[in-house]
Computed example of a mutant assay.
Amino acid sequence: MHFKSLLKKNTMSIIFFWCCIALIFKMGDFSAYYTRYFSSDVILNWFWAAPLSLASAQLVGRAVAPGLFRVQVLSRRMVIVGMNKQGLALARKVELAPYAGTAFLGFFEDRSVDRISRQERYRVLGKIENLTAYVKKHRVQSVYLSLPMTAQPRILEILDSLKDTTCSIYFVPDMFITDLIQGRSQSLCGVDVISVCDTPFRGFRDFLKRGSDIVFSTLILLMIFPLLLLIAVVVKATSPGPVIFRQRRYGLDGEQIVVYKFRTMVVTEDGGTVKQATKNDSRITPVGAFLRKSSLDELPQFINVLQGRMSIVGPRPHAVAHNEMYRTLIKGYMVRHKVRPGITGWAQVNGLRGETDKLEKMQARVDFDLDYLRKWSLLLDMIIILKTIRLVFKDTAAY
Rank of each mutant, 00 (worst) to 15 (best):
S168G: 13
F171H: 05
P148W: 02
D179P: 09
L208Y: 05
S212M: 08
L180K: 06
S161A: 15
K136R: 14
D213H: 05
L208C: 11
L180D: 05
V172D: 04
I158Q: 02
S217M: 06
S142P: 10
G211C: 11
S161D: 14
I158E: 01
F176W: 15
V196Y: 02
K136L: 10
F204K: 13
L145V: 02
P173G: 03
D198V: 03
K136W: 06
V172S: 03
R139E: 11
F204H: 09
Q141W: 02
I214Q: 14
T166G: 04
D192H: 07
S195G: 08
F176C: 14
S161W: 02
F216E: 14
R154I: 14
G190A: 05
R154C: 10
R202D: 08
S212G: 13
S146E: 04
G203S: 12
S185K: 12
R210P: 01
A133S: 11
V193W: 00
D174E: 15
K136Y: 02
L188A: 10
L162P: 05
M149H: 13
S212P: 12
T178K: 15
K209E: 07
K137A: 09
D206V: 12
V191G: 02
K163D: 06
V196W: 01
I169P: 11
R154V: 08
L162T: 07
R210W: 05
S161C: 11
T150D: 14
F171R: 04
